[in-house]
Design a protein around this nucleic acid. Structure first.
Length: 574
DNA sequence: CTTAGGG
DNA sequence: CCCTAAG
């Protein structure tokens, strides 16, 4: 209930100097605000497979659309048919009506899967299949279960390639214009893995001045704990309570902490893929019916990618775009969850990361390529994986999932790829003599999970430290709200600003707002050409500049009134 | 916990 | 966004 604080309208330039206006607690010099702030915290999407293979081409990403529009359900063959045949409600009913922070998901919807996992521990994996399982791409008939070690790979081929990424852009959150709080139409994203977690469950949340069951103060902490349970603990080691359900607020889709080593590949997924595609073509020499580039490059193609389960609930009034973003976020969330890539040749797992492809039997003239299987395995040793290859050496190429800056980038890349990749360039290949220009790569199964083991506390903490919130670019509406609040409250009361304008936007902390203001000021000072991301109306930027100038000056005066007096005295003495 | 700034 | 020093 903060609206009363901000009831009065603020004139364009008539900033109110609150009675409690105060000087900054410390008179630290604020320098280099102008310093460019890396706006694109981009991270590439699921480039990991591509990275492993060295080459990977993506084609049309229509899969995502299909997934969404058709909500096509593909029934997978499985070694555990009984699980697949069970009908599962699209959404757990237990969520509605409960305190979102404590809501528990009914296990009924997923028990089959979970049971499958538990009861077939030896298999080390579980299917999340079933009629409601979302799948990107489609499978052909030859889904052959293959067990090796702790990961099972489905040799399923499809005709659709999809590139996955993640979106950090979110729908306009509940922006209070200080004096009004609209009905919240927020979403929560649940994640679930094959064990007991939910991935990609998006649940609408409507709240308006409703009593908080959970003290706000505890919000973040609770969230963090839950999140960490899910992302670190829950997904990597067995929980003592197999059926525990986790709740994840939407902003808790923390990706793996980005490592500096990966920065270089994070800028533009689009360009990256385009580059590769072109390189492939350019370097190609017709070595007979070779499917290999001149320099003994092996071309690999991920033909499909299946997502275990993706539960999405979204208001009818939501836009298709937001749905897509949610799906993308959910999917990327899955991928980000500490999986690593496993490679199998002829059903045999290749563990030595330092082996060359050739040594492994993946070469231009080998015949094993059809039996090349990639898998996503849970990596209990993620921390090591992430940190022990600083120079990005051999095994360093086995990068974990990164995240794309925003949906636009991802979609754009998909689009470009499809353009660069005429459908015939692939589809016909299998028929013509040049058939192996592209090698169908077996599908990946996300849901594999080795026998769970408990992590030591130290490990948990290690993983805990690797959390990072997803990037959530401010929408224009949010900027508007922020500007208005700052005009009124000034630049030194972020907590109040938060309460005033972002009370219900749980994912915006006052630090976030402060940071955003920082970037806004910067943005306003640079030329429009240099700005990135969703363009902010110049009018807003002008207000930013004005408010910034005003409050900065205000602060100065509060800060050094005595200095001025002294100066005056000094002058008088002279 | 809040602020302010640097990373 | 994250991390931290400071208050």
């Amino acid at each position: 209930m903060v609206s009363h604080k901000c009831v009065e309208e603020v004139g364009y330039k008539s900033y109110l100097l609150p009675a409690n206006a105060r000087a900054p607690r410390s008179a630290r010099k604020r320098r280099s605000i102008e310093k460019t702030i890396s706006e694109d915290d981009n991270m590439c999407a699921i480039d990991l497979l591509a990275t492993v293979a060295g080459h990977l081409s993506f084609e049309s990403g229509s899969s995502i659309d299909k997934l969404i529009e058709d909500h096509r359900v593909v029934t997978q063959k499985s070694v555990k048919e009984e699980f697949l045949e069970e009908e599962k409600p699209l959404m757990p009913e237990a969520l509605s009506g409960e305190n979102p922070y404590q809501g528990s998901l009914s296990t009924s919807g997923f028990s089959s899967v979970i049971n499958g996992k538990v009861e077939n521990e030896a298999d080390g994996f579980s299917y999340s299949g079933g009629s409601d399982a979302c799948q990107v791409g489609s499978f052909s008939e030859d889904i052959k279960p293959d067990i090796d070690g702790d990961a099972l790979v489905l040799d399923a081929r499809a005709n659709v390639v999809v590139s996955l990424g993640s979106s950090s852009r979110t729908e306009v959150p509940s922006i209070g214009n200080c004096d009004s709080h609209g009905v919240r139409d927020d979403v929560n994203l649940f994640s679930r893995d094959d064990d007991e977690n939910f991935s990609g469950y998006i649940h609408p949340r409507v709240r308006k001045n409703s009593p908080r069951t959970v003290p706000r103060i505890g919000d973040r902490r609770i969230r963090k704990i839950l999140a960490s349970r899910h992302w670190k603990g829950g997904s990597r080691h067995a929980d003592t309570k197999p059926w525990r359900n986790y709740y994840l607020h939407h902003q808790r889709s923390y990706p793996i902490k980005k490592r500096k080593n990966f920065d270089h590949i994070s800028d533009s997924i689009t360009d990256d893929y385009r580059l590769r595609t072109k390189m492939h073509r350019g370097s190609r020499k017709g070595q007979g019916a070779s499917f290999v580039a001149s320099n003994s490059h092996v071309k690999l193609r991920i033909k499909s990618f299946r997502v275990p389960e993706l539960f999405i609930e979204i208001p009818e009034t939501a836009t298709v775009g937001s749905l897509k973003r949610m799906v993308m976020e959910a999917v990327s969330t899955l991928l980000s969850d500490g999986h690593r890539v496993g490679l199998m040749v002829h059903g045999k797992k290749v563990r030595d990361d330092n082996k060359t492809l050739h040594q492994t039997g993946i070469s231009q003239d080998n015949t094993h390529l059809d039996s090349l299987d990639f898998s996503l395995e849970p990596s209990s040793d993620m921390p090591q994986l992430l940190t022990s290859h600083p120079s990005g050496h051999a095994s360093g190429e086995l990068l974990p999932v990164c995240q794309a800056a925003n949906m636009d980038n991802v979609l754009e890349s998909v689009h470009h790829d499809s353009a660069l990749f005429p459908s015939d360039s692939l589809g016909k290949n299998n028929v013509t003599g040049d058939s192996k220009a592209m090698i169908p790569v077996a599908l990946t199964e996300l849901a594999s999970r080795p026998p769970c083991r408990k992590l030591k506390r130290s490990e948990q903490q290690q993983q805990q430290a690797a959390q990072r919130r997803i990037r959530r670019p401010f929408s224009v509406a949010e900027v508007e709200a922020l500007v208005q609040a700052v005009e009124k409250l000034g630049t030194g009361r972020w907590r109040d600003v938060k309460l005033c304008a972002f009370e219900d936007a749980d994912h915006r902390t006052y630090v976030d707002l402060k940071d955003k203001w920082k970037t806004l000021v910067h943005t306003a000072k640079i030329s429009p050409q240099q700005r990135r991301g969703e363009p902010v109306p110049q009018e807003l930027l002008n207000r930013v500049l004005n408010a910034h100038g005003y409050w900065t000056q205000q602060q100065m005066q509060l800060q050094q009134p005595e200095t001025q007096a002294q100066t005056t005295e000094a002058l008088l003495l002279l």
